[in-house]
Structures are given as C-alpha cells and as structure tokens.
Design a protein around this nucleic acid. Structure first.
Lengths: 107, 107
DNA sequence: TATACTTACTTACGAAAAGTAACTAAGGTA
DNA sequence: TACCTTAGTTACTTTTCGTAAGTAAGTATA
C-alpha cells in the first residue's frame, strides 16, 4: 500500500468531515450558538461522543466554547469564522440530499 | 438520549460522507473512471476497506462497476449521475481546505 | 506440465473507535 | 440534608478499522 497522492489540505479537511458526528455537530451549530444538551438531543448523539467531538472541533479552531456562570451553569458552543466558512459546503449537501436521497433510502 | 430532529435525507447524506474513506473514494472517482488498484494507491486505502466502500457506494447508487474481460482483467469503477452530482460539494471542500487548513494542520 | 504473474478481491485477527448506561462534579434550591 | 440542573466522565460491550496473508481466475513463462 502506498502513501496518498492527494493534496494534504484537502485530505485533512475530509478527515474532519468524515469522522462520525462532526459534520452533524457543525451543521447544528450553523443555526446558532447552543448548549451541550441542545446539540445532544438535536442530533441524537451521546454525551460521551459529543464531549469528544466538541473537544476536537475546538482544537481544530472550528468551534469555540463559552462559559456563562448562571444558574444552572450555561456553556455555549458556537462556530468560529473557520467553522462558519463551512456553510456553503453544508448548503451543497442539503441540495444534493434533496435531489438524490429518496425516502426509501432513509429507511 | 432522544431521536434526531434533523431532515432524514440530510442525515442520510451526511452518514454516507461521514463514513471513513467514502468521501475520498468519491473525490478520486471525480477525476474519471478507474480501476481498483488505482484508487487503492491514489488515496492510500487498504484493499479490504476499498472493497467494502465500493460495495456500499454501489448499493447507494453512487458508484457503478464495469467488468472488461481483458488480460489481465480490468474492472472499472465510475460515478453515476448521483455520484457526479457531488462535484459542487467537493469543490466547496477544496475551497474551504485551501482557505482554512494551514500547513501545520496537516502535520 | 508446473510455476509464476497479474488483478481483484476475501479472511483472520489484534487494535481502535463507537454505543449504552451509570456515575461524578459544581452550583443552587427546598 | 436531600435533591435538582447542566455538563460532562467512566466502565463495559459491540462494531469498525488496519495490517497482512491468502484465494480465485486468467494468462504467460520455464
């Protein structure tokens, strides 16, 4: 097996998107900043994995985390400029899914 | 944990793209029909997983497989219309990666 | 005839990641 | 003190991945 011949930047971008749940987390955050439990129930991910994904997306500079010391505590996750820049891509995926994914596909 | 509130078609589309390697396989096939071993070395995937991914993409109607009984045998994989329709999305990912992925990110 | 070569896979198996559920920590409330 | 809320973490099982070796079909070579 050989090393890939692809552009490393593209490969990196794809590796972020092709990790399970990360795409959906980003998509969900495109509708605005929100807290942990909101994302959790919106996309149906478990706390264990959401915690992991948010941590990685923060490290990648795609998501930022802000703490509001209210009662009960509020921690909001939102997209950085880098994260928001994925909007056109998500739009294309919406278009493709509407045009090509049938209702039988979703069963 | 609750069920997701997202559009099922979009979720399905994302599930295809967020399975490891599928995005790269589709991207690679955008440059034209090609055989198993070409894809294998171009993106650095193992035969075991490439076989699995091509089978699934065929089931999804994104990839088609054609056998040419030459010597040695030639089996070509190419994108269907549904697969080709992912080109704009891949273009957006290229743009994003060029704008936002740094060379340090790729280390 | 037997051995080897090519492509396109498949099988076996240990390692890594994901899924589920229960648990913890911090802060406030009854 | 006991309990509630959010935001996680831990423990454990199941699924998926990665690596390497093996198989099958069809030539070609010694």
């Amino acid at each position: 097996m050989q090393k890939s011949q692809l552009c490393p930047k593209f490969e990196k971008a794809m590796s972020i998107l092709s990790k399970r749940w990360t795409g959906l987390v980003i998509y969900q955050l495109l509708s605005g900043p929100q807290r942990f439990c909101t994302i959790e129930s919106a996309i149906g991910i478990s706390g264990r994995l959401l915690s992991d994904r948010l941590k990685h997306l923060e490290e990648e500079g795609i998501v930022k985390r802000e703490v509001y010391p209210e009662t009960p505590i509020r921690i909001e996750y939102s997209l950085t400029e880098k994260g928001l820049a994925l909007q056109p891509l998500m739009k294309e995926l919406e278009i493709w899914s509407q045009n090509w994914v049938t209702s039988e596909d979703t069963l």
